[in-house]
Design a binder for these strands. Structure first.
Length: 354
DNA sequence: TAGGCCATCTGGTCCT
DNA sequence: AGGACCAGATGGCCTA
């Protein structure tokens, strides 16, 4: 690869590993890529750069780039050949200019890589603060953004209305526009029994979209029953999944049981088999006996507790919160351990149960 | 094997 | 001039 020709380890930030750099063996694919790069290597050098280059004409490199030179190469588009390129004429590449171009390109590639890594890092942080975080089964970028948007919207509605949202509506809000696997994941994280979901959806539409529902003004359609995520399914014996799963907080944990059909007995009983009306998207490892040890999902509500300012006065102006709940004691998310926010959960839980 | 997701390279554009 | 940002292209990996 071209970049490898100029691979300078000092240009790679410490602690960052890139596949392209880590792999020292040059595969056929790499060679093909290099050839492709050489073909597209047509830098337009500035006059200044040209003047800097004191290379004599006999230093001109015989490469495919010179093919762009001359009128004879500007082929008529109607003939189906390459379109005539605009801009200044390509200058012949001397070795020195070629070296400078490659160095420039290499530096730009490094910057771009770092930029994308920063972007991915930020995305990872976002994954941690939206519901259903998992280190082992990450949400895709687009799904993370969608879920984050829905989550923000749901929290905003809670703040605005000051009411406990309906469980199903809450899940619907979170899952709006998400893919089926992600929807299953979120629903599973919320311990939403798929049978209940179907029942409520088909029989209780009026309640779901009742005027007093926090999420009633944004109805949307669903195509499939939401599967209880295997990651949060009940463990062996009579252990409640929420109790057996230290990182699996739930809607009920926070808001209490608000759905008539969503009883604790159903929660504690065996969940119905995985159900999907369109028969697709069973999650990987759904029936795996050791599924619990492989997945750890969290539900996050600290954003509600951490909200401040006049626009979020609802929670903190609530008398229930004035007793024993001190928002000033809350730390920014980054300064807290990710799984170390139990007191916040408890206080929020107390608020929603008052 | 097709499709989704991702990392990387690349050239263009805009800004400082 | 150089960096940031962006979008297109490409190929690898994984899964249904």
């Amino acid at each position: 690869m071209l970049t490898r020709l100029f691979s300078d380890p000092t240009l790679i930030p410490e602690g960052q590993k890139y596949t392209a750099w880590a792999d020292d063996s040059e595969s056929d694919e790499d060679k093909m890529r290099e050839e492709r790069k050489s073909e597209s290597c047509e830098p337009v050098d500035s006059q200044a750069e040209d003047s800097m280059s004191g290379a004599p004409n006999n230093e001109e490199v015989e490469t495919g780039m010179e093919e762009e030179e001359g009128e004879e190469d500007e082929v008529d588009e109607e003939n189906g050949a390459r379109p005539r390129k605009r801009g200044p004429k390509r200058r012949k590449m001397t070795k020195a200019r070629m070296e400078r171009f490659k160095l420039r390109r290499h530096k730009a590639n490094t910057r771009e890589r770092n930029r994308m890594h920063d972007l991915n890092s930020a995305l990872d942080n976002l994954r941690k603060v939206v519901p259903c975080y998992s280190k082992t089964q990450k949400l895709s970028k687009i799904e993370t953004l969608r879920l984050a948007k829905n989550y923000i919207w749901a929290l905003s509605e809670i703040l605005r209305s000051g009411k406990r949202p309906d469980l199903v509506s809450y899940v619907q809000t979170l899952c709006k526009g998400l893919s089926q696997p992600t929807t299953n994941l979120v629903a599973g994280c919320l311990q939403l029994n798929s049978r209940n979901f179907l029942t409520e959806q088909s029989q209780d539409t009026g309640r779901l979209h009742a005027p007093n529902s926090s999420f009633a003004m944004h109805p949307y359609s669903y195509q499939c029953a939401r599967l209880p995520s295997p990651q949060c399914q009940p463990g062996p014996a009579n252990s409640h999944p929420l109790r057996s799963h230290p990182y699996c907080s739930t809607y009920e944990h926070l808001y209490g049981n608000t759905s008539p059909e969503y009883t604790s007995s159903e929660l504690e009983g065996p969940l119905s088999p995985s159900l999907c009306t369109n028969g697709t998207y069973p999650l990987k490892g759904e029936s795996s006996p050791d599924q619990d040890k492989n997945y750890h999902y969290t539900m996050h509500y600290s954003a509600v507790a951490g909200s401040r300012g006049p626009s979020h006065g609802l929670l903190f102006n609530n008398p229930a919160l004035r007793t024993g709940f001190h928002p000033d004691t809350l730390l920014p998310y980054d300064s807290q351990g990710h799984h170390d926010r139990t007191p916040v959960y408890e206080e929020l839980n107390a608020f929603f149960h008052n």
